[in-house]
Amino acid sequence: MESIDRTTSKAQVTKALKNVADFNGDIESFTFSYFHDYHKNVFLRSLKNYINQLICSDDLGNQLDTEYFDLDLTESLISGWSNMAVCIDYIVENHYRVVGNRKKLNL
C-alpha cells in the first residue's frame, strides 16, 4: 500500500491491543483508563512493530523492500488519546515511510 488508511490503521491497533487485553467487539470506544504502565509500553511497542511490518508500495503499485512505514510514538501520547478511535486517527494522520541510506529492517 502507498499509505496507511483508516481500515489498515484500525487493524494494527486491534492487533496491538490483543497483546495486552481481551475483548469481543469493536475497539474504538475503549479507553486507556486503568492501563498499567506496563500495558502501555507493551501496546506501543507492539503497535510500532506491526506498522513497521506493513508492506510498502510506490505510487505505481510496486512492492518495495527498501522502504517501510513508521510512526513517531511516545508514552506521553497515550495521555492525549481519549479512546482507541483517536489512536487510530493519529496513525492515519502522522505515519510516514522511511527512505534513505538504510535498508529496511529485517522484520
Binding site: E2, S3, S57, D58, D59, T66, R97, V99, G100, N101
Partner: peptide, 16 residues
C-alpha cells in the same frame, strides 16, 4: 504529497 513516488523518482539520490 505522493509519499509513494518519492523513493521512485529520487532513486539513488537520497543520501542525507
Amino acid at each position: 504529497h505522493s509519499q509513494g513516488a518519492f523513493g521512485r523518482i529520487n532513486q539513488g539520490k537520497v543520501d542525507t
